[in-house]
Write a protein that binds this DNA or RNA. Sequence first.
DNA 1: CGGATAGTTGAGGGGGGTCAATGGCAGTGG
DNA 2: CCACTGCCATTGACCCCCCTCAACTATCCG
Lengths: 392, 392
Amino acid sequence: MNKTRILIIEDNDDIRESTAEILELAGYEVMQAENGKIGVEVATRNLPDLILCDIMMPELDGYGVLYLVNKNSQTAATPFIFLTAKAERLDMRKGMEMGADDYLTKPFDDVELLNAIESRLSKKEKLQQFYSQSLDRLTHLLGNTPGIAELHKMIAGRKVRTVKKKQVIYYDGDTVSGIYLVLSGKVKTTKLSEDGRELLTGIYSSDEYFGVPALLLNEPYTEAAEALEDSTICLLPKEMMEELLNKYPAVGKQFIQILSNNLIEKEEQLLQLAYHSVRKRMAEVLIRLCNREERSERSERGERLERTERSKVGTRQDREESSKKNNEHPDSLEQSTGLILKVSRDNLAAMAGMATETVSRILSDFKDEEIIERKGSQIVILDQLRLKNMKN
Amino acid sequence: MNKTRILIIEDNDDIRESTAEILELAGYEVMQAENGKIGVEVATRNLPDLILCDIMMPELDGYGVLYLVNKNSQTAATPFIFLTAKAERLDMRKGMEMGADDYLTKPFDDVELLNAIESRLSKKEKLQQFYSQSLDRLTHLLGNTPGIAELHKMIAGRKVRTVKKKQVIYYDGDTVSGIYLVLSGKVKTTKLSEDGRELLTGIYSSDEYFGVPALLLNEPYTEAAEALEDSTICLLPKEMMEELLNKYPAVGKQFIQILSNNLIEKEEQLLQLAYHSVRKRMAEVLIRLCNREERSERSERGERLERTERSKVGTRQDREESSKKNNEHPDSLEQSTGLILKVSRDNLAAMAGMATETVSRILSDFKDEEIIERKGSQIVILDQLRLKNMKN
DNA sequence: CGGATAGTTGAGGGGGGTCAATGGCAGTGG
DNA sequence: CCACTGCCATTGACCCCCCTCAACTATCCG
């Protein structure tokens, strides 16, 4: 096997050369660049396996490098680690949100450096493997017309980004660089009203796209996106999408379906907000969440054959799944009593457009009426039917 | 010029033959069919210029004939007149809603018959001419990529349907036969809540499509559509749309844009319904209506050169336009004070999701504050800015 | 184990829905 | 021409739903 090749972009000669030395001793092949511009050139020409990059640099700063590297499909999947002085911590978050994979604060010692690099390289491999599974799943589910296959090939080449719970992926008003696909975890999109209350406009889990309408309209986002739990997502850049849309009608049809579904759902929600009591709205929100849950459960079950090796990756996640299975087997029908939802009151309130206190009160009522049960902050749905027939 | 060719479909031999005789005397070329099945065959083979058709027939009834004739693109644009016994009046409405152009109640005399036929033939010509103008307009506006041109060619071949104010075009739950394009007039789509209150989900005027998501999802309508004023619309059947979508990415892109826009607008409305006071919501609804008005006004103005002959067709409509122009010229800026809106309180209430009484009250307040003025049941917008900055 | 964060419960008040009565306006028929 | 009728818009009275504020309790985390 070839040596792993690392590119260091750093304007300070001392730091760059000493770092390079450490890495060479550790058995890596090292390339050096003394500013961002050169760095990008080297990256595109030599396609390193990993990039270390300073933020503060003349000519082109670290953000610029990251942006350009991500834009180029050949280098986009390359792990990218920021090197940064301690004072720049705040800017770091921005860097992470732009798609950097990790960061090291200067001064760093040898161990830190090598650890970060190795963990990143191994993680990349794992994620790549994991993602290729969910890709298979997608392909499997959606059939395999010419355009869709291209779409998936494109997804395959993209960098997988991990976001932590509560991390913001984009803000309302940000310019759009592409469309996002959730590989694992959950992401919510929200709109803020002037007085600061938020409305949850969508929840997206595995295999779902978000940020779609903004991309296709070529306008800034009209909503913010935030991870509900630790998630892995994948950015499909605008240029690629447009090319695919222009070439393959099937891709367009795919998105038309998604948009149409969304639209109808939103109209239903409008009706509910307009004329239904909080009580009924709460019930409807719970049902929406149940349906999501059942759907994703079903799609997971359908795949269980082909990926028994997944247990190597997920640990906590698998425990959850088995606990769900217990509650699911007693009656194997759709009408599954005992579905567990994990949502904060705040998110429930933001979905139904009401105050968190009201959510609390209504859930208490539901519990008294034995429609639901509370397990800590989780909600167990006992009687979907009564939720569906909730009077106004 | 060739003789105009008329097809009579009628199972009663006496009526059919006597009618045929009258028509031949009047100089038409006549074809006869003694039941629906034969009628459809003759229609597709000989492509008559007009079809007269009984409703109650063995083998295939009038509705069936109409359905099949409309489905075939070669015959879809042929004027279609129902012949019906007096007792069947109620069924008639159904026939008209399905796309018949007129009906005659048996027994009818010669004059009635010939009048109906001639008026229909001349109207067809006028409409065809008018529509080809709005087609030009569309093509002009949207550029002329390969797919779009096909789309317009298709529109050109379609029958134009006229609907009267308050006439329902489709109901919630109806199966979808195609997508609608408004050529003139205004159409609203509404959803009904269980307790009968309605929410207005969209208003569509010239050159806008409605019924889009239902078609593209292949599911029944989730809303009802009704004409707000006398309108002309055009149905683009499902099969054709699918073919175009599969062939031309540009067509798909077009609809993606429409859907995305709709989606973002709906999300904005969700936010408003969730957290804004009725007062602010009312202001927002008025602004939405103003924007629509200004937009359609602008697109009309852009075209005024190419269609001076239009005054032959519209009479009432043109008077409206000139009255608008008076209120528009004083300041030629966008910020036009004095925009006139014609909406019923009920529709306003349905748009904002509140009670009509509340609409009344708020409009009264706005009038006191000199933000609007009332001219009969019309509303004159005096101060858009204050509407936009309405506090919550 | 505190300190923070998330969730629950109570009291109070106002925004906006409901019901009902009245006022305007257009269409209809005498 | 007016009276009659029916529909739509307006206004008032009432009161209930749900939001706000506030205090309290549970849960999670270092």
